[in-house]
Lab assay of single mutants.
Amino acid sequence: KYTPEEIEKLKELRIKHGNDWATIGAALGRSASSVKDRCR
């Protein structure tokens, strides 16, 4: 489950890194597949 803060951070990282899920996941301390599924 993602907190509202994590979702905000995810949005920012998505703008910065696009679909680089590995980088976004690492920044959030989550797996690449987890953040990818969250963005769907």
Rank of each mutant, 00 (worst) to 15 (best):
residue 16 K to D: 09
residue 37 D to F: 02
residue 9 K to Q: 12
residue 23 T to F: 07
residue 36 K to Y: 08
residue 26 A to D: 09
residue 38 R to E: 15
residue 31 S to R: 01
residue 13 L to A: 04
residue 35 V to N: 02
residue 25 G to P: 02
residue 23 T to L: 11
residue 25 G to K: 01
residue 3 T to F: 08
residue 20 D to L: 00
residue 25 G to Q: 04
residue 29 G to E: 09
residue 37 D to P: 01
residue 32 A to N: 01
residue 36 K to T: 05
residue 30 R to T: 09
residue 5 E to S: 10
residue 11 K to P: 04
residue 7 I to V: 12
residue 6 E to C: 00
residue 7 I to T: 07
residue 14 R to Q: 15
residue 30 R to M: 10
residue 34 S to D: 15
residue 14 R to N: 12
residue 10 L to K: 03
residue 24 I to Y: 01
residue 3 T to D: 02
residue 23 T to M: 11
residue 3 T to C: 01
residue 30 R to F: 02
residue 2 Y to H: 07
residue 32 A to P: 12
residue 39 C to M: 10
residue 33 S to R: 13
residue 27 A to W: 01
residue 27 A to F: 05
residue 19 N to D: 15
residue 32 A to L: 04
residue 18 G to P: 10
residue 3 T to Q: 07
residue 26 A to K: 13
residue 24 I to H: 04
residue 2 Y to F: 15
residue 17 H to S: 04
residue 1 K to Q: 15
residue 39 C to A: 12
residue 26 A to Y: 04
residue 1 K to V: 07
residue 19 N to M: 05
residue 20 D to M: 03
residue 5 E to F: 06
residue 19 N to R: 07
residue 6 E to W: 00
residue 12 E to L: 13
residue 17 H to Y: 12
residue 27 A to V: 12
residue 11 K to G: 10
residue 18 G to C: 08
residue 4 P to F: 12
residue 38 R to G: 12
residue 37 D to M: 13
residue 16 K to V: 11
residue 31 S to W: 01
residue 14 R to K: 10
residue 17 H to G: 02
residue 5 E to G: 11
residue 12 E to P: 02
residue 12 E to T: 12
residue 33 S to A: 14
residue 8 E to F: 07
residue 37 D to L: 11
residue 28 L to K: 01
residue 27 A to N: 09
residue 4 P to L: 12
residue 18 G to M: 08
residue 13 L to T: 09
residue 17 H to E: 03
residue 9 K to D: 09
residue 1 K to G: 09
residue 8 E to G: 08
residue 5 E to L: 09
residue 24 I to V: 06
residue 9 K to H: 13
residue 39 C to P: 03
residue 33 S to C: 13
residue 5 E to W: 01
residue 10 L to Q: 02
residue 3 T to H: 06
residue 27 A to K: 13
residue 9 K to A: 10
residue 24 I to D: 03
residue 15 I to K: 14
residue 16 K to W: 03
residue 3 T to A: 00
residue 27 A to D: 05
residue 4 P to S: 14
residue 7 I to S: 09
residue 31 S to Q: 05
residue 33 S to W: 10
residue 10 L to D: 03
residue 31 S to D: 12
residue 6 E to K: 00
residue 9 K to W: 00
residue 35 V to G: 02
residue 5 E to V: 09
residue 38 R to S: 13
residue 33 S to K: 14
residue 4 P to C: 13
residue 33 S to G: 10
residue 33 S to D: 14
residue 4 P to K: 14
residue 32 A to G: 06
residue 40 R to Q: 15
residue 35 V to P: 02
residue 28 L to S: 04
residue 25 G to Y: 00
residue 40 R to S: 15
residue 20 D to H: 02
residue 7 I to K: 08
residue 29 G to M: 01
residue 17 H to A: 01
residue 6 E to H: 06
residue 9 K to T: 10
residue 28 L to G: 05
residue 20 D to T: 01
residue 26 A to R: 13
residue 18 G to N: 09
residue 14 R to C: 07
residue 31 S to G: 04
residue 22 A to L: 10
residue 6 E to M: 05
residue 28 L to N: 03
residue 16 K to M: 12
residue 29 G to R: 04
residue 8 E to D: 12
residue 20 D to K: 01
residue 18 G to F: 03
residue 36 K to W: 06
residue 14 R to M: 14
residue 22 A to Y: 02
residue 19 N to W: 02
residue 18 G to L: 02
residue 1 K to T: 11
residue 35 V to A: 05
residue 5 E to K: 00
residue 36 K to D: 08
residue 30 R to W: 12
residue 15 I to M: 15
residue 30 R to Q: 13
residue 10 L to F: 10
residue 29 G to L: 00
residue 24 I to R: 01
residue 28 L to A: 05
residue 31 S to K: 03
residue 24 I to N: 06
residue 26 A to F: 05
residue 28 L to F: 02
residue 2 Y to A: 04
residue 33 S to Q: 15
residue 12 E to H: 10
residue 23 T to E: 13
residue 8 E to K: 08
residue 40 R to V: 15
residue 27 A to R: 09
residue 22 A to I: 12
residue 25 G to L: 01
residue 25 G to C: 02
residue 22 A to D: 04
residue 30 R to E: 14
residue 38 R to V: 15
residue 22 A to Q: 12
residue 32 A to T: 08
residue 23 T to Y: 04
residue 28 L to Y: 00
residue 31 S to N: 07
residue 24 I to E: 07
residue 39 C to Q: 06
residue 5 E to T: 11
residue 31 S to V: 03
residue 22 A to M: 07
residue 6 E to D: 11
